[in-house]
């Protein structure tokens, strides 16, 4: 029987023998999860699924889950990343299926690969966002984006827990475009990837590739910049979804962080 005595480590833990990286989505209502909420949900899912996750040592052992820049509360994502340390090797596909089954619907594991080579953080320097702007005409958005892209620098202010920060949106913006309207000139209907019904009115859709900076430029900051530069104020809250993360190539596309030689397509 194990009794902890003064001066001993509380839980000498078995070592990490394998790391698996996973891409997961934050969808629908669960886009309102904060990063801490996501992390807690994963920690519990790992336990429910019986995954042999490694733990930190000490009096307060925590499962070894490493996170990469989380999508903000309220933003959906098709491309969040986490790395899990295991005490026993597992097939990545098996791990992904087990975790996906144990997570609440809306947190969905999409892809997994054994970690090798460069660190996850070194494989990501930009995000591609899709932002739906209900009530905004595509031509209004186009004009605003043209104005923003014509500047060299566009500073917006954001209130963070550590005070007010000035953020240069233009400097971080690699690319931004209006997605083409649906065929037949019908109003574009807002249908996010998770199938939540949209408002059924005009909705411009923007795709933006944003370089990772500190602090990170968020979709809200891009919208703030469009307000500053062109007075664009969507009448209803915009819905942002992170579609991809990865390393920027010379064309402004993103390389898949889980595969050294796969490159995501632009759509």
């Amino acid at each position: 029987m194990a009794r902890v005595r003064p001066g001993e480590a509380a839980n000498p833990a078995p070592p990490t023998v394998q790391r698996v990286r996973m891409r997961f989505a934050k969808r629908g209502r669960l886009r309102f999860l904060s990063h801490r909420d996501v992390a807690r949900s994963f920690e519990r899912a790992v336990r429910r699924a019986g995954v042999p996750v490694a733990h930190s040592h000490g009096f307060s052992p925590h499962p070894r889950l490493s996170w990469i820049g989380a999508a903000p509360t309220g933003s959906a994502s098709e491309a969040e990343y986490v790395e899990i340390g295991l005490t026993r090797p597992m097939e990545p596909a098996e791990l992904a299926a087990a975790l996906d089954a144990a997570l609440p619907a809306g947190l969905d594991v999409l892809d997994a690969a054994v970690a090798e080579g460069a660190a996850l953080a070194d494989r990501i320097d930009a995000s591609r966002w899709r932002v739906e702007l209900p009530g905004v005409e595509p031509h209004e958005l186009l004009a605003a984006l043209d104005a923003l892209l014509a500047t060299d620098s566009l500073i917006v202010e954001r209130v963070t827990p550590s005070g007010r920060r000035n953020i240069d949106v233009r400097a971080a913006l690699v690319r931004a475009e209006v997605d083409p309207p649906a065929p037949g000139d019908a109003p574009v209907e807002a249908v996010p990837p998770d199938g939540t019904p949209g408002a059924g009115r005009t909705c411009a859709i923007m795709t933006a590739v944003v370089r990772q900076t500190t602090p990170a430029v968020r979709p809200d900051d891009v919208l703030g910049a469009l307000d500053v530069v062109a007075g664009l104020r969507p009448p209803a809250p915009a819905k942002a979804t992170r579609m991809a993360q990865g390393l920027l190539d010379h064309r402004g596309d993103l390389a898949d962080p889980l595969g050294s030689d796969r490159v995501t397509t632009r759509n």
Binding site: E8, N11, A13
Partner: peptide, 15 residues
């Protein structure tokens, strides 16, 4: 126990 079995074999503290 969920997650127990062989994977937790090395986890018991000494003493």
């Amino acid at each position: 126990v969920v997650g127990g079995g062989p994977t937790s074999g090395g986890a018991s503290a000494g003493g």
